[in-house]
Amino acid sequence: MEEVIGSWGQFVTIFVMAVALGFDAFSLGIGIGMRGVRLRDVLRIGAVVALFHVLMPLAGLFMGQYVSSLLGNVAQLAAGGLLLLLGGHMIYSSLRGDAVQSIDYRNGWAIILFALSVSIDSFSVGVSLGMFDTNLLLVVTAFGIFGGVMSVMGLMLGRRVSQRLSEYGEALGGVILFTFGVLFII
């Protein structure tokens, strides 16, 4: 009986963590989606985010306690710095119009940077979970599904909002990304 309660508690804990980590992907997806993203690109970005939400906690689980103590704040600062750069560039390019080349989120490197920035906290959570006896398959499956699905939901919502805001969509999306970058750093 205790084993059933313990496994149920682990399931609920991992589920809550997966939803919480997915909210990063959701909210940042809104910012990218406001820039105007095609449906095909939404699915591609969502798939890459899901992959990173599998790989990052998996890597974290295998790194253990030592790396956690070394990289805890550095990982969060790196994610915040990436978001500040992406958001600042979006704001700048929306204000300057066609005079500035904007970051193309259909580009493979831009998608990887975005996926990395929204999944870096999954690495830290993975390191923490690696210190306990956790179900590896459950962790990476839940994190991957919620990260991917919630990023697609955020991108779709941002896409809808951008159609209504037209030229201000990219600036507002940049402000959202920039704000999250500041919050990551603080």
Score class of each variant (00 low, 15 high):
residue 1 M to D: 06
residue 3 E to L: 06
residue 4 V to L: 15
residue 7 S to C: 09
residue 9 G to V: 04
residue 12 V to H: 01
residue 13 T to E: 05
residue 13 T to G: 01
residue 13 T to V: 02
residue 21 L to F: 07
residue 22 G to S: 03
residue 25 A to N: 12
residue 30 I to H: 09
residue 30 I to K: 13
residue 31 G to K: 07
residue 31 G to C: 09
residue 34 M to P: 10
residue 37 V to F: 09
residue 39 L to K: 12
residue 41 D to V: 00
residue 44 R to I: 11
residue 49 V to I: 10
residue 54 V to N: 02
residue 56 M to A: 07
residue 58 L to N: 05
residue 59 A to Q: 07
residue 61 L to F: 04
residue 66 Y to G: 10
residue 67 V to Q: 04
residue 67 V to W: 14
residue 69 S to E: 03
residue 74 V to S: 12
residue 75 A to I: 15
residue 76 Q to R: 14
residue 81 G to N: 09
residue 82 L to G: 12
residue 85 L to T: 14
residue 87 G to W: 12
residue 88 G to E: 14
residue 88 G to P: 15
residue 89 H to M: 15
residue 104 D to I: 13
residue 107 N to K: 11
residue 113 L to K: 12
residue 114 F to V: 03
residue 121 D to A: 14
residue 126 G to D: 07
residue 127 V to D: 02
residue 130 G to Y: 01
residue 133 D to W: 10
residue 134 T to D: 04
residue 136 L to S: 08
residue 137 L to K: 03
residue 146 F to I: 06
residue 148 G to A: 03
residue 154 G to R: 01
residue 164 R to G: 13
residue 166 S to Y: 09
residue 170 E to L: 10
residue 172 L to W: 00
residue 172 L to H: 04
residue 173 G to K: 05
residue 177 L to H: 01
residue 177 L to S: 13
residue 177 L to T: 11
residue 178 F to C: 13
residue 186 I to R: 04
